[in-house]
Amino acid sequence: TFTSYQLEELEKVFQKTHYPDVYAREQLAMRTDLTEARVQVWFQNRRA
């Protein structure tokens, strides 16, 4: 599960791009204290 802060950050990036590159995902992962893999999976699920 994600915190409301994490979801907010993820959604913010999703609004800009549905396909963030690895750099964007790593920045987001650091900001949200998630792994890059978790961020990647979240985007895959969000796009589905």
Rank of each mutant, 00 (worst) to 15 (best):
T1V: 15
T1I: 12
T1W: 14
T1G: 13
T1Q: 13
F2H: 03
F2D: 01
F2T: 03
F2G: 02
F2A: 02
T3P: 02
T3V: 04
S4F: 10
S4N: 11
S4K: 13
S4Q: 14
Y5I: 08
Y5S: 09
Q6A: 05
Q6M: 06
Q6P: 01
L7K: 05
L7Q: 08
L7H: 07
L7R: 06
E9M: 11
E9W: 06
E9F: 05
E9P: 00
L10S: 00
L10W: 00
L10V: 02
L10G: 00
L10F: 04
L10N: 00
E11W: 05
E11I: 09
K12R: 12
K12Q: 07
K12H: 11
K12I: 07
K12N: 06
K12P: 01
V13P: 02
V13R: 01
V13E: 11
V13T: 09
F14V: 01
F14N: 05
F14A: 03
Q15Y: 07
Q15F: 07
K16V: 14
K16S: 11
K16D: 11
K16G: 07
K16Y: 11
K16L: 14
T17A: 06
H18I: 07
Y19H: 08
Y19V: 04
Y19N: 06
Y19G: 02
Y19S: 05
Y19Q: 10
P20Y: 05
P20R: 01
D21P: 06
D21I: 02
D21E: 10
D21N: 11
D21G: 08
D21Y: 02
V22L: 15
V22E: 14
V22K: 15
Y23V: 14
Y23T: 09
Y23C: 06
Y23I: 14
Y23N: 14
Y23H: 12
Y23G: 08
Y23W: 12
A24P: 09
A24S: 08
A24R: 06
R25H: 03
R25W: 04
R25K: 04
R25T: 11
E26T: 13
E26Y: 13
Q27E: 14
Q27W: 11
L28T: 02
L28C: 04
L28E: 00
L28G: 00
A29Q: 06
A29K: 05
A29Y: 04
A29E: 03
M30V: 11
M30S: 12
M30A: 09
R31C: 06
R31M: 12
T32S: 04
T32E: 02
D33F: 10
D33Q: 13
D33H: 14
D33E: 13
L34F: 01
L34N: 02
L34E: 01
L34A: 03
T35N: 08
T35P: 07
T35G: 04
E36G: 05
E36N: 06
E36L: 11
E36A: 11
E36S: 08
E36R: 05
E36W: 07
A37G: 10
A37M: 13
A37S: 11
A37N: 09
A37K: 09
R38Q: 15
R38F: 11
R38I: 15
R38H: 09
V39S: 06
V39Q: 01
Q40T: 13
Q40S: 14
Q40I: 07
V41P: 00
V41I: 14
V41T: 12
V41C: 08
V41G: 11
W42C: 00
W42T: 11
W42M: 06
W42S: 06
W42I: 04
W42K: 01
F43L: 04
F43A: 00
Q44M: 14
Q44R: 07
Q44C: 08
Q44E: 15
Q44S: 13
N45Q: 12
N45P: 01
N45T: 08
N45K: 13
N45Y: 11
N45W: 06
R46L: 02
R46W: 03
R46T: 03
R46A: 07
R46K: 10
R46D: 02
R46H: 03
R47P: 03
A48C: 14
A48W: 09
A48Y: 10
A48E: 15
A48P: 04
A48I: 12
